[in-house]
Design a protein around this nucleic acid. Structure first.
Lengths: 117, 117
DNA sequence: TAAACATATGAACAAATATTCATATGAAAA
DNA sequence: TTTTCATATGAATATTTGTTCATATGTTTA
């Protein structure tokens, strides 16, 4: 009696296991997704665009983005938590600036993709 | 009678107008945010991670990501709409692969940021 | 010290979105 | 042609998330 190898719907375990070994840890994937999530909002992208030029205070960013200082403050907190911006205080004014060269690089790559497709 | 220049809470219009001229169009900002939004989900990031290695069918991706074929199919639609993946059909099986070198570049920059911070 | 101001923060609400479930479509096998 | 299978799709649900509003904090000016 001969036996057959079921070919049809059996997943290719060799292929899958090979890739499974190569895939990054779930934790890393999660953190990358969290990072890109920060870029995935128009208001935050506007803030980043503006900060690419120079450091700005909350009020100026609010004017530039047609938002309220409160909304901007909330979004700056998100950017801060993601380590994308840093700040310095000068009296009651708080100046924000980009914290990392990756921000510029990720921004540029995104822009290239959007402009080319 | 002398007049004073109000210094305190008056926004710096020169500075703001200068930056306003440099900022990208709202439409471009929006599209960039939409692009990054696609990267901003763990399931989609896993799919992208896997496709960085080689083309895969829906079923294999479902196994690799511990998701259902249905959930994966929905997410592949999102990736397709963002022009990040392409596909080819072979009978009833559909093979997906990355559509653009930018995907790899954006992915790598994100990974660098996460691993360094 | 009191008033004005810049920014931050918490709660509430509205909008966006990922997954699930049921079902549809279309292709290969029986 | 009937069944089985791979993938797709629509509706419903649950969760996440951005903004608003009211208020708090801390700093400067009157």
């Amino acid at each position: 009696m001969d036996f057959e190898i079921a070919e049809q719907n059996v997943v290719d375990f060799e292929k899958i296991n090979k890739i499974k070994k190569i895939l990054p840890q779930d934790e890393l994937i999660f953190e990358m997704a969290e990072l890109f999530k920060v870029f995935g909002d128009s208001t935050r992208m506007k803030i980043i665009s503006a900060l690419l030029e120079e450091e700005l205070c909350v009020g100026d960013i609010a004017v530039l983005t047609n938002s309220t200082p409160s909304a901007i403050s909330h979004q700056l907190r998100v950017l801060k938590q993601a380590k994308l911006v840093k700040y310095r205080k000068e009296g009651k004014i708080v100046y924000y600036s980009l914290d990392d060269e990756h921000v510029r690089q990720i921004y540029e790559k995104g822009r290239e993709h959007v402009e080319e497709v």
